[in-house]
Amino acid sequence: MDSYEFMLYLGVMAGVTYLVRVIPFVLVKNKIENKYIKSFLGYIPYAVLAAMTIPGVFYSTRYFLSALCGFVTAVVLAYFGKSLITVALSASVMVFLSGIVIDCF
């Protein structure tokens, strides 16, 4: 990908993201009343994140097994309400450690 192509992608990406954020902020004065639309919009973030995480997370590291260890660690800590940073870094540490163990075999 050359710089021109990159800038084109970046422009579209940043432009759409900016407009999605700003248009309702500037234009909408009233609350959305339709409960189906409200619900749809409310569920979107979770559905997006879920689809991005699984199965992608299992192939994000050198070994499937160490990714699995990191994933389980993250799910357990998140379940018990640990903060964003704690969950993210603990998953990393677990991938690091399990990766070293796997390397030994």
């Binding site: 992608g56 993250a74 969950v87 690091f96």
Partner: peptide
């Protein structure tokens, strides 16, 4: 390799 999973960790959180 280990830090690459952090973003997913945030999604999970």
């Amino acid at each position: 390799d280990a830090l690459g999973i952090a973003l997913y960790g945030m999604f999970i959180a």
